[in-house]
Write a protein that binds this DNA or RNA. Structure first.
Lengths: 228, 228
DNA sequence: GCAATAGTGTCTTTGAGACACTATGGG
DNA sequence: CCCATAGTGTCTCAAAGACACTATTGC
């Protein structure tokens, strides 16, 4: 077939899966939709791409800034997947490129929302995807969310940067281990995990920075992950 | 139900990075553009999404069928990334979702092309991205190609299915090893690599099927990867 | 026999996991 | 002293890498 230009066009949005850890629990940012379709239903934050002036990364970052008011220099953002089922949006064929973001613990804060939402909040991931029913989400957002969880789980073991992005700038061995436990939903033997941690220190991938910190037991050393 | 939305829309295409191994060399399918922009320049095959009736996977598969006339049941296809720089296409803001495909050696064949191309052929990957200059590609297709190579390299060690998708239905230990060598661009010690291979046989991930095959030296056993 | 390709055995090192242990702080 | 948390040592096993070796075919 021969292509005459222009061609039919599609709406394009980004959806954002923002993760953060608070109180030892993995949370995800959701908004409550103000308008149809899916009025009153919880959904991932997202919005339409500004055609001609921004790329999808820019669109996702803009959405995240509107939502969190954060400086994104210390936030990890990565494209996840593009969802394009013609029936995924009842308004028509809307293609959506999903991103996920990891918010460091020391930047965690309350969420804002704009006119298209009537509420926005951090929700425990387990309560959203919960085995015991969970929470209905708009569009195909449950699928996007589970894809994002799978991606983060698949990467955290191999890329220290992922764990770093959920931790405060300085952290202890135990906090580093707990991030892995929370994300993977399993327990690790502290001894064996710390051996791995010490190797990363020897390799220069993690550096000891501060000395101690007040807790109820023995004081812990503080570390920082080197970017490289 | 229908809702009207005032948002501007974008063109959406898929671009396809099709890999195959022939004569122990990794090749990629390219077409020569017949029309502007980039008239006469080599490019990845691709095409516009049919809005409202197909999703991106379907669009990529359609392109691949047009190009190769293959039954895609034995072809591995995976979404790679979505490229959205507003200036990546001089015609306007065209968003492109790239896919990569792995063609089994026993399905390798000549390429067809449709009206938007004046030629189509398999090109040695090394000649395209070559350290010694390489080949100019249209749009951001060089970036897409190198991203695809990186993805395949990153996955082949962990997912036997990737190697399988480049091999014929039945293959020898040496062929399995050579696929890894060709994709990664390195040599592996046959002894150590074969140990790993034998482990996969013990685990039932690979099954011995045929017995022998004619060559100039000792005859080799034939194997098949189990899907699982 | 010889060339060519297929396939094995052994040693060393590295890292994962199980599990018992020591160290240092506050009260 | 006791509790709580931080952190270590040792044993075993699985797998990777270096490298010397044996096996089976055609001619």
């Amino acid at each position: 077939m021969s292509y005459t230009y222009p061609y039919p066009k599609a709406d394009h949005t980004t959806d954002l899966v923002a993760f953060a850890i608070e109180n030892m629990v993995l949370k995800v940012a959701l908004i409550k939709r103000r308008d149809d379709p899916f009025k009153g239903v919880w959904a991932l934050p997202g919005g339409f791409l500004n055609i001609g002036t921004e790329d999808l990364d820019g669109c996702a970052r803009r959405e995240l800034i509107e939502e969190t008011s954060l400086d994104l220099n210390n936030v990890y953002i990565e494209q996840l997947y593009t969802y394009s089922d013609p029936t995924r949006d009842p308004r028509g064929h809307v293609i959506s490129t999903a991103y996920y973001a990891l918010i460091p613990a020391d930047l965690f804060g309350t969420l804002k929302h704009n006119d298209d939402a009537e509420d926005a909040k951090w929700v425990n991931l387990a309560d959203v995807i919960g085995e015991t029913g969970g929470m209905p989400l708009a569009f195909d957002h449950m699928r996007i969310l589970t894809d994002a969880v799978e991606r983060v789980r698949g990467k955290i073991d191999y890329f220290p940067r992922i764990a770093m992005s959920l931790l405060p700038k300085q952290f202890t061995q135990a906090e580093f281990r707990r991030v892995h436990e929370i994300v993977n939903g399993v327990k690790f033997d502290p001894s064996n995990f710390n051996k791995r941690f010490r190797r990363m220190v020897s390799d220069g991938r993690i550096t000891k920075t501060g000395e101690q910190r007040a807790t109820s037991g023995r004081h812990a050393s503080l570390y920082r992950i080197e970017d490289a």
